[in-house]
């Protein structure tokens, strides 16, 4: 388990990184935190000729809150995002989900951009971005462009980034104040990739109706799943156990899970139902508690 021969270029700036990527051609790979890529190198499942190392790009390591939108540089470490009060205030779903990403040691090195660009459908970050309608900013030789999360995740481990593009930032709209969030994740061991995870955020108005709700599901399709139909069932309604059950069924219907050694597809579909119900139940219960307080 040793990486195949490769060249390594430590990018000195974004332009340098893009130039190197273009010059190295299709067999180049971008190295962010390395937590997914270096094991793939060691297994020789990835054998890039050149690694373009973004590790020195301080310009991509930032968290900015402009009031409406939170922008996070792609090279910001997951642990930094997870523990940032700014992030917790603007998009509480993100730190809630990041706690399920591997272990602290992984999050110390892994980056938010790396996790998004790796596009593992069982990973938490892509699901958060789908749930919150984030935008992803990419730069390439043709300049920067913005990609909606819904258009970004293409398939299993595939995104719509061009081979010569680098993900530089993600932008997440601020969640309405008073939002509640809940993550229900089922993994075999703490820190493992989810068999299925359901990420939910809701805003419940003063009359007890669901003003806004966002649900996304990880591990249940080749890309993160946004449970639009379930959200439509819920919005504007006062939650009841029956409604929550109906929404959970609708969420599960939106999934398209595969089978692997850890669980068959049917089991994942069952999990999607159960976890969505539990997630929504928590969101509602949290609200009741908050309002009582």
């Amino acid at each position: 388990m040793k990486p195949a021969p490769l060249d390594h270029v430590r990018a000195t700036g974004l332009d340098h990184a893009i130039e190197t990527l273009v010059a190295a051609g299709e067999d180049a790979k971008i190295l962010a935190g390395g937590q997914s890529l270096v094991p793939l190198l060691a297994m020789r499942l990835a054998q890039p000729t050149t690694l373009v190392d973004l590790g020195g790009l301080r310009e991509l390591d930032y968290i900015r809150d402009d009031g409406d939108t939170l922008e996070i540089g792609a090279m910001t470490r997951s642990r930094t995002v997870e523990t940032s009060p700014v992030v917790a205030g603007a998009v509480p779903l993100l730190p809630a989900a990041l706690r399920y990403v591997g272990h602290v040691t992984i999050r110390n090195r892994g980056t938010i951009g790396g996790s998004a660009a790796h596009a593992d459908p069982a990973a938490e970050v892509p699901s958060v971005l789908r749930a919150l309608d984030a935008e992803l900013i990419a730069s390439g030789p043709r300049g920067p462009r913005t990609i909606a999360a819904r258009d970004f995740f293409d398939s299993f481990l595939l995104t719509t980034l061009e081979p010569d593009e680098i993900l530089t930032a993600i932008r997440i709209p601020r969640q309405p104040s008073g939002s509640v969030v809940a993550v229900e994740e089922f993994a075999r061991r703490h820190g493992d990739f989810a068999l299925v995870a359901v990420l939910g955020a809701a805003h419940i108005d003063s009359s007890g109706r669901i003003a806004e709700v966002r649900i996304s599901i990880a591990g249940a399709a080749p890309t993160p799943v946004r449970a639009d139909a379930a959200e439509r069932l819920l919005v504007g309604r006062t939650p009841t156990p029956e409604l929550v059950r109906a929404a959970a069924a609708a969420a599960s219907d939106a999934t398209d899970p595969g089978s692997d050694i850890h669980a068959p597809a049917d089991y994942r579909r069952t999990l999607a139902t159960v976890l969505t119900r539990r997630c929504l139940t928590r969101l509602v219960a949290d609200t009741e508690r908050t309002e009582a307080a």
Binding site: R188, R189, H190, G191, D192, F193, I261, H262
Partner: peptide
């Protein structure tokens, strides 16, 4: 063989 890593062969950790 489909279990060739510690991600697939599940040795319990302290939380289990």
């Amino acid at each position: 063989p489909l279990t060739t890593t510690f991600m697939d062969y599940l040795i319990p950790t302290a939380t289990e």
